[in-house]
């Protein structure tokens, strides 16, 4: 696990203010041991999640992205997480066409009371990302993208 056995990877977490951010806080107050790879961005609601946030993070060098909000039926704004669920599920299924491993993105629900669940989620997701290793970079300094590369041709139709 990072901070202990190997070097840290970059994981971005988008957390709902009302549930998962509280859940992460609960886990912290309870002094549950957690990996430190996650960088948290607080959102008012997962309904605020634009799938582009995830894509921007993944193309920008994140090795994994975690979105967590209130359980269904528990949204502070009643339907934000229902809307988010559809968008995020579509996004999860979209990633493979970009050549991005879909395991690098997860969305889930953690309530403010579920400190232990938060610990489990973060630990499991961080482990997955460490198994996958660093994500391939779009802007790789070793890469010469302007050099001819033999590649599969997919023609415009």
């Amino acid at each position: 696990m990072s901070g202990m056995a190997c070097s840290e990877l970059k994981i971005i977490g988008f957390l709902c203010n009302w549930c998962s951010y509280g859940g992460a806080d609960t886990a912290g107050v309870a002094r549950f041991r957690q990996p430190t790879d996650l960088r948290i961005i607080r959102l008012p609601c997962t309904g605020r999640m634009d799938p582009l946030f995830v894509l921007k993070a993944l193309l920008g060098g994140a090795d994994g992205v975690l979105v967590s909000g209130c359980h269904p039926f528990d949204c502070h704004y009643s339907s934000g997480n229902f809307m988010a669920r559809r968008r995020l599920e579509v996004l999860a299924r979209f990633l493979p066409v970009l050549g991005i491993d879909p395991r690098r993105f997860v969305y889930t629900w953690v309530s403010a009371a579920e400190g232990a669940k938060w610990q489990a989620v973060v630990t499991a997701f961080t482990e997955t990302i460490h198994e996958l290793g660093p994500a391939p970079r779009v802007l790789d300094p070793d890469d010469a993208p302007l050099r001819f590369k033999e590649g599969r041709e997919i023609w415009p139709t």
Binding site: A144, L146, R147, F148, E150, E153, W155, P156
Partner: peptide, 20 residues
């Protein structure tokens, strides 16, 4: 050295490589 290389229906200047 940049040379014109055919990619699909386009021809673009790429850094020259002998295989291109």
């Amino acid at each position: 050295v940049m040379t014109p290389v055919r990619e699909g229906i386009s021809v673009v200047f790429r850094d020259h490589s002998p295989e291109a």
